[in-house]
């Protein structure tokens, strides 16, 4: 056996476990899922339950559903807000903990910890904060006394409930993104900063001309991660708002903060339309793939090599 053939055999052998797992749990289910979205599949034992091919019917009825259209709009709105907030907060935190501030190691851990709490639990914790702690704050501080009124409960109104989702999303994810920024900021060669300082550049100028361009690669990654994370938001959505409060859209009462992932879940399991839920998931996949490809290609152009 030649060296080359042996090498390639070893190569595939080592790759095999991952390949098998990837094929079994990702590739096959993906294509099965796409196939199911063209059928009337329900995964239940109904009396007249023959699996039938129904063409594009699931897709058409999805697009006709105002709740689905509303979920799309609201998810994009949420994603944009969330990306801006998470990255702003994460980058500021990263600047803070890479500066000479005291106890910075402890801050790093502290900011990262929320990311280790499960989203469901986090949603319930914040639900308590919004429903009980915020009105209590209103009772303590006269300036915020409007918070004690039931009409001003954050989760009782649509717009503020979405902001609540953004706040919790940022609180949960900013620490994780901060870690990526820390690595990027610390990788900026010290000589660049020293040279700039000798030339008399202010900290703000150095941030703009050195740190930001040098960290552009990190931005590609963090933008992608926050985009996908926000688009797929599910657990916090379930436990914090369950999609409420309700609102009118195209003349129909629907759930006001039901993000796409929750809409897909509810279609599949609350409405017992598994195939239609699957069709929505396929649409979701295509849209997210296209948006993230565009995002990555835009970000890539801004990266620079040393």
């Amino acid at each position: 056996m030649s060296m080359k053939r042996e090498n390639s055999l070893v190569f595939w052998l080592f790759l095999a476990p991952v390949l098998v797992a990837f094929t079994v749990v990702i590739v096959i289910p993906f294509f099965l899922g796409v196939a199911y979205s063209f059928t009337n599949w329900t995964s239940s034992a109904k009396a007249d339950n023959a699996l039938q091919f129904v063409g594009l019917q699931n897709y058409l009825s999805s697009f006709k559903d105002p709740a689905f259209a509303h979920s799309f709009g609201i998810t994009i709105f949420y994603t944009v807000l969330n990306m801006v907030f998470i990255n702003l907060v994460a980058f500021s935190l990263a600047l803070l903990v890479t500066s000479k501030v005291r106890l910075r190691k402890i801050y790093r851990v502290g900011f990262f910890v929320p990311n280790l709490i499960g989203g469901l639990i986090l949603g319930y914790i914040w639900q308590f904060l919004f429903n009980n702690a915020v009105p209590a704050l209103g009772r303590l501080v006269p300036l915020f006394s409007f918070l004690t009124q039931a009409e001003n409960l954050i989760l009782a109104k649509n717009t503020s409930a979405i902001m609540a989702l953004v706040i919790v999303g940022t609180w949960q994810y900013a620490g994780y993104i901060m870690m990526i920024y820390i690595a990027a900021i610390e990788n900026v060669p010290v000589e660049l900063h020293e040279a700039a300082m000798i030339d008399g550049a202010s900290p703000l100028q150095r941030l703009k001309a050195i740190t930001l361009p040098m960290a552009a690669q990190a931005f590609t990654v963090t933008m992608f991660l926050t985009l996908v994370q926000s688009f797929k938001q599910f657990d916090v959505n379930v436990s914090l708002t369950s999609g409420g409060p309700s609102t009118m859209f195209q003349g129909k009462p629907i759930l006001g903060t039901e993000l796409l992932a929750l809409n897909i879940y509810n279609t599949a399991f609350l409405s017992n339309k598994l195939a239609e839920g699957q069709a929505r998931a396929v649409v979701f996949f295509l849209v997210l793939a296209i948006i993230s490809l565009i995002q990555v290609s835009i970000n890539k152009k801004k990266e620079l090599e040393l």
Partner: peptide, 30 residues
């Protein structure tokens, strides 16, 4: 009544009535 009807159609109507977003006449109409 199906779970779909109760949870996705009726539930939002009750919720809006409770929030004061719709009047009793609108509740009956919806």
């Amino acid at each position: 009544f199906t779970g779909d009807f109760r949870d996705k159609t009726l539930n939002p109507i009750y919720n809006q009535f409770a929030n004061g977003q719709i009047s009793k006449a609108q509740f009956v109409d919806l």
